[in-house]
Amino acid sequence: MSDASFDDGREAPLNLGAQDSDDLQVISTLVQDAVFPVTEMTWRPSKRRFALLLNRFRWEDKDAAAQRNRPFERVQSVLVFDDVLSVSSQGIDRRDKDMILSLLSVDFEAGEDGAGHILLTLAGDGAIRLRAEALDATLKDVTRPYRAPSGHAPHHPE
């Protein structure tokens, strides 16, 4: 009998929360290069909730896919921020219903008493800024993984 290894583990959909900057950094890494139509952003002021339906590259599976010579994958995920007081954006034309956005990073700029701003940086100089009473983020996979249409992993030259 041998010890269990990491490869013996069962893959499961991600369901992560973030309530501080360190937690949010993990989510930011996992949503880097996620793409979404401008129509998949939702701001519910009465519920103080901002949400995105993302097509997320599965960074957590990249090495295993490369080692096993199988296709890279994406998965649809919902990224939700609660306790949001206001939303502003730049470089985004909400009237262009065909616009596809690419998420580069998610950061938290802390203010007083746990409040602050969540900054979603987009490719092409776009950005979304959420003023939040507190950092309360959730990332949840909502579909089965599917083959990445490009067939390639995103690449960022250093």
Score class of each variant (00 low, 15 high):
105 S>W: 09
74 R>M: 02
61 D>L: 11
138 T>Y: 15
8 D>P: 06
96 D>H: 13
8 D>K: 06
33 D>I: 03
123 A>W: 10
32 Q>G: 10
63 D>I: 11
116 G>V: 05
48 R>Q: 15
107 D>L: 15
103 L>I: 07
34 A>F: 05
88 S>G: 07
23 D>I: 03
17 G>D: 07
27 I>F: 05
35 V>L: 00
107 D>N: 12
89 S>G: 02
31 V>S: 06
41 M>S: 11
79 L>A: 00
84 V>D: 08
3 D>R: 15
30 L>H: 01
101 L>S: 00
2 S>F: 11
20 D>Y: 12
154 P>H: 09
118 I>L: 10
109 E>R: 08
130 L>K: 11
92 I>M: 02
20 D>W: 10
9 G>V: 04
105 S>Y: 09
31 V>H: 06
89 S>M: 02
128 I>L: 10
155 H>R: 13
40 E>L: 10
4 A>D: 13
37 P>H: 11
24 L>A: 03
12 A>L: 12
11 E>R: 09
57 F>V: 01
105 S>A: 12
95 R>A: 13
71 P>R: 11
110 A>E: 12
60 E>P: 01
112 E>P: 10
143 T>W: 06
20 D>K: 13
106 V>E: 00
70 R>F: 08
143 T>H: 06
96 D>R: 15
131 R>P: 07
63 D>M: 10
69 N>F: 05
125 D>H: 05
13 P>N: 05
143 T>L: 03
15 N>S: 07
123 A>P: 09
136 D>A: 12
93 D>S: 01
142 V>D: 07
50 F>I: 01
116 G>H: 12
84 V>P: 14
138 T>D: 15
141 D>F: 01
43 W>M: 02
151 G>C: 11
57 F>M: 05
61 D>V: 04
123 A>T: 06
57 F>L: 06
76 Q>N: 05
147 R>A: 10
146 Y>L: 06
47 K>M: 14
151 G>K: 15
27 I>M: 05
23 D>T: 03
134 A>Q: 13
110 A>V: 06
46 S>R: 12
48 R>S: 13
95 R>D: 09
116 G>Q: 09
152 H>R: 15
102 S>V: 08
63 D>R: 11
118 I>E: 01
64 A>D: 08
137 A>K: 09
24 L>E: 03
33 D>G: 04
96 D>T: 11
120 L>D: 00
105 S>N: 14
76 Q>R: 05
14 L>N: 01
98 D>I: 07
39 T>K: 13
150 S>C: 03
128 I>T: 03
26 V>M: 07
76 Q>V: 01
60 E>F: 00
3 D>F: 15
65 A>Q: 14
17 G>I: 08
65 A>N: 14
80 V>W: 08
68 R>L: 12
120 L>I: 05
117 H>R: 11
34 A>L: 06
1 M>L: 10
31 V>A: 04
23 D>L: 02
146 Y>D: 04
95 R>T: 13
142 V>M: 09
155 H>S: 14
82 D>R: 12
33 D>P: 06
99 M>W: 13
32 Q>I: 04
87 V>C: 13
70 R>V: 13
103 L>T: 02
57 F>N: 01
103 L>K: 06
4 A>M: 14
66 A>I: 07
87 V>T: 13
135 L>Y: 02
